[in-house]
């Protein structure tokens, strides 16, 4: 009875046990804050790279080849030191026409006019309203820290979208 009481009242190593139990939780919380800060930083890098790319597009810098691949390449290049957060292959760009009157109403209406009037109007419209634009949806995968790769093996997805018009349509 005395022995059992003695064992019950002994607190040797009790603090150590508690520490062992809680330190992983604390560590995980600190790591997740750290990870989240890096994630936000990467997101900001991506947003800025997207803006730079869109402004380059608007200035007519890549008028010859402005497909999704070219846009993705430019975003990758504009990421600069932020490239360490992403894989080049993980940046995927999907482009589509903008919802402007020109691409949504004028051009489809003109395309429905039979030749020879239709193509004639189309060519004069292209000369008179010679602005064009694109809308892009950009998807990228963010590299998680090694400790979080268990949870997110392919990385964390990031998506953003943007649209801009440029003039003149062809340099």
């Amino acid at each position: 009875m005395n022995l059992s009481n003695q064992i019950k009242n002994r607190s040797n190593g009790q603090a150590l046990t508690e520490m062992v139990l809680v330190i992983p939780i604390l560590f995980l919380m600190a790591a997740s804050i750290f990870q989240f800060s890096i994630f936000l930083s990467a997101k900001t890098y991506l947003e800025q790279a997207c803006e730079q790319t869109a402004r380059l597009y608007a200035s007519g810098a890549f008028s010859r080849n402005e497909g999704p691949g070219q846009i993705a390449n430019q975003i990758w290049f504009a990421l600069g030191s932020g490239q360490r957060f992403f894989n080049e292959t993980s940046i995927v760009v999907i482009d589509s026409p903008t919802s402007t009157l020109l691409s949504n109403s004028f051009l489809p209406a003109i395309n429905n006019i039979p030749p020879p009037v239709g193509p004639l109007i189309a060519s004069s419209t292209a000369n008179l309203l010679s602005y064009t634009g694109k809308k892009w949806i950009i998807n990228a995968q963010f590299h998680a820290l090694p400790i979080f790769r268990v949870l997110f093996p392919v990385g964390l997805p990031m998506t953003t979208q943007m649209a801009v018009l440029k003039y003149p349509a062809q340099e």
Partner: peptide, 10 residues
């Protein structure tokens, strides 16, 4: 910014 640039293009 992109909206303003688009307005400028038109």
């Amino acid at each position: 910014d992109l909206t303003a640039l688009s307005a400028g293009a038109v």
